[in-house]
Simulated assay, not measured.
Amino acid sequence: MRKHITRLLAATLFSVASLAQASDFKEIRIATEAGYPPFEYIAPNGELQGFNIDIGNEICKRLEAKCVWIDQSFDSLIPGLQARKFDLANSTMTATDARRKVIDFSSPLYIVASRLVAHKDKPLEPTAESLKGLRVGVQQGTTMETYARKEWAPKGVQIIAYPSYTNAFTDLAAGRIDASFQEAPNAVNGFLDKPEGADFQLTGDTIKDSAILNEPIAIGLRKGNKKLKAAVDEAIQAMLTDDTIQQLSQKYFEPNTIEFPSGK
């Protein structure tokens, strides 16, 4: 995906079409798993904050709707959508083919690299050969878990799934697992920048040839919710066109940490 964006036509369409639809949505319930900084997390004051929270709030603002945020475990997001407990799932969810069979997705938001974290004395690579006989922590229901169970587990790597990466980082610091596998910004903000992560580092290459890991992040919607999907897609398109999403990302990420779609 290219980072350079030229979408003036999309901006024009948004100003005419989306604003006309804004009154259709008085309240939008958005679920997230708030243990994944810097994407979504609970601040010391108890408020939900993060990159995806900012994106969701901006979408609600453009649709003139009230955002109601719901903190859910990641593996309950799809069942919750299907059960109509909320309208959107905005929680760094990769738009995989398997998930598209059961829910719809918005237009792509961004792509982020997945990396291993291990102790500085363990220069591990994200391969079955390097990880054989070791314990690798992942979060339940993530594409990292899917990839690890498909590519590594059959070849002797023990995959430990946690309800949150917070739990995985605790076990990593205590030596109960040998590595964790997650999106790089979460590893930095959620662990490596903290005192308990001082002896750990991102290790190994980024996996670039995996259809599982290199799909875009998007917002999940219930199947058939066409009106809301159209409105959210138009808002995202406009936010990419006017650089709103790119500017929001600068609060949370180093340059070139994530990539944005062309949006054409």
Rank of each mutant, 00 (worst) to 15 (best):
N256M: 02
K223Y: 04
L8S: 04
A118S: 10
L202T: 12
G35K: 07
A235D: 06
P261I: 03
S106A: 06
F105M: 01
F74R: 10
Q139H: 02
A184I: 10
L124V: 06
K3T: 14
P79N: 04
N52I: 00
D178M: 05
I217A: 07
N57E: 13
L192W: 08
L9H: 08
E64N: 13
G141F: 00
N52P: 04
A198H: 11
A34D: 08
G263P: 02
K226I: 11
A173M: 00
L228T: 10
I160N: 14
T203A: 01
P185V: 02
S210G: 05
T166F: 08
L19M: 09
P44R: 04
T170R: 14
G46H: 01
S106F: 02
T96P: 13
G204S: 00
F253M: 00
H119F: 07
T257W: 03
E125Y: 05
L19S: 08
E64H: 04
A22S: 01
D233G: 11
G35T: 14
G50T: 12
R2T: 11
S164R: 13
S210C: 07
I219G: 03
T92W: 08
G190D: 01
S249Q: 04
F25Q: 05
E151I: 07
L9S: 12
F39R: 09
L131G: 03
T143E: 12
Y147A: 05
K208R: 14
Q182S: 14
L213T: 00
L131A: 05
F200T: 09
Y252R: 01
L202N: 04
S91H: 10
T244W: 06
W69N: 02
P185Q: 02
S262K: 11
D24E: 10
A65N: 08
D171M: 02
A153E: 15
K150H: 08
L19V: 12
I207W: 08
A198R: 11
A95R: 09
A184K: 05
F200Q: 05
A128T: 03
F253D: 06
L109T: 10
A128N: 00
K226C: 08
R99K: 00
I160E: 12
K251I: 12
